[in-house]
Design a binder for these strands. Structure first.
Ligand SMILES: NC(=O)c1ccc[n+]([C@@H]2O[C@H](COP(=O)([O-])OP(=O)(O)OC[C@H]3O[C@@H](n4cnc5c(N)ncnc54)[C@H](O)[C@@H]3O)[C@@H](O)[C@H]2O)c1
Ligand SMILES: NC(=O)c1ccc[n+]([C@@H]2O[C@H](COP(=O)([O-])OP(=O)(O)OC[C@H]3O[C@@H](n4cnc5c(N)ncnc54)[C@H](O)[C@@H]3O)[C@@H](O)[C@H]2O)c1
Lengths: 214, 214
DNA sequence: CAATTCATGTGAAATTTTTAACAAAAAACG
DNA sequence: CGTTTTTTGTTAAAAATTTCACATGAATTG
């Protein structure tokens, strides 16, 4: 039906990202067509799940055939809104912030880093990966000039809320927070938290569980 | 009831990691006691959710009072099995692998990196963060010597499966995969995938959605 | 020390998400 | 060109998860 304004589960969005990843692998391997059954096996999900997930956005397959890999990648990226350039900015130019600025994959995937902000006077003015580090207090002013859509926070945790405030104040509606701290934002701002210790905890728990049950 | 061998939702485990993060923040701020209501607000979940999650593992609160922050941190870490040292190894000593080896937070959280493996003859023998880089073909042999419990894969995606095979062969039961590729493992091996582009996609999608609906 | 307040732990209800089942449509085949 | 095969899109059923509601137990107060 693909009617808009229907609620799409968060889990669906997460799986869509996995589908892109797997489809791009398939494409590199020269595969043209894939069935929901095979795609499902690779993603470790149920085939119905995939068809259901895709149905939220439209009809992308051909009955009796499957999905054309290239077309499906394009369709999913369009559905997610990642078929265009997103202007992003990094706040907190320390170890991690620098690593992200130097990571070329961002540009490759349409996330162009157009701003680098820090509060440390020794860092302000420095050129990192072709970008001048700007004082984070000037974020709003700069945002009006360059247009920031997504903010990436890589400050220490106790500074994450302040960085958030700068971003929100500048009208940024999407935030990725690498600092291990929860942040408060207005309802119309989206936050995603990235913390790989969460994954380590999950693995440790599962390994413990499996070890006990045998 | 806290009876063992009851299935615990994956989502619960993910939230437990968030609870630890927030509780540690509260502890740094000198807070001794917290109610499920306040903790819930900080974590952006329902208070019942927290009580239910914790109930899978035991009774950690005091009625009419709340939870003692320090005790709850200890209890959750124990419940997850992260109150001990986990011996981990990194496979693929490139940019990311090196960054992880140099990240002191791992040791701080009980994840001790005891092995560094790569297949590149130019890297083998090099000392990175006090560890000698070993040939990945010798992983099994080395694992028997040092005891590896968790493997971290930071190879290019097309090599992730090979790295996985070495780890599985060496008896490793938990894997964190930073390479953007799905990997196949036996049933008794747990895999967690880390890919921050998934988070960027999710934010881009939500920002698009919110922008449309206004 | 009874009464009151407070916040947990928990069983039942509501909601959401996943899985199964199948009709519909496209291609392949004789 | 009808028949068979294949695999999607979709509706219905099943399962899982979340939320509600409240009884229970601990502390506090008068
Ligand atoms: N280094 C890693 O590999 C890694 C991995 C995962 C998560 N993290 C998290 O990412 C964050 C950054 O880590 P790091 O190693 O880069 O730390 P860092 O100390 O090297 O960098 C932090 C930077 O943030 C800047 N900063 C502080 N307050 C600021 C503010 N209000 N506005 C703008 N900039 C501000 C500091 O000047 C500094 O340059 C931390 O929260 C850390 O826990 C780091
Ligand atoms: N660099 C980042 O910031 C970053 C961030 C997120 C994800 N990643 C992902 O992490 C992976 C590594 O990234 P990188 O930038 O460190 O790449 P890199 O090329 O610098 O490092 C890859 C390393 O893996 C080694 N390797 C290859 N095959 C191997 C095998 N079979 N066994 C053992 N070692 C092997 C290579 O010799 C090399 O040293 C990639 O899949 C990348 O997509 C990187």
């Amino acid at each position: 039906m693909s009617l808009k304004s229907q609620h799409i589960p968060r889990a669906t969005i997460q799986r869509m990202a996995v589908y892109i990843q797997v489809l791009e692998s398939l494409q590199r391997d020269g595969k043209d067509v894939i069935s929901s059954e095979l795609l499902a096996k690779t993603c470790s999900v149920n085939p119905s799940q995939i068809r259901k997930d895709l149905a939220y956005f439209g009809e992308f397959g051909v009955r009796g055939v499957g999905y054309y890999v290239q077309d499906l990648i394009t369709s999913i990226k369009q559905a997610l809104g990642v078929d265009r350039v997103w202007k992003t900015a990094v706040v907190g130019i320390g170890n991690l912030g620098r690593a992200l600025l130097n990571h070329r994959e961002f540009k490759l995937r349409g996330f162009h880093i157009v701003g680098a902000f820090d509060c440390d006077p020794f860092k302000i003015g420095e050129i990192v990966s072709g970008l001048e580090v700007i004082c984070s207090r000037r974020l709003k002013e700069k945002a009006e000039e360059i247009g920031i859509e997504i903010g990436i926070i890589t400050t220490p945790p106790e500074r994450a809320q302040r960085a958030t405030n700068y971003l929100v104040d500048a009208g940024v509606k999407g935030i990725i927070n690498f600092a291990p701290a929860r942040i408060n934002v207005p309802d119309d701002v989206t936050v995603e938290y990235v913390d790989f210790f969460h994954h380590l905890y999950a693995v440790a728990f599962n390994v413990t569980l499996n070890a006990e049950s045998e």
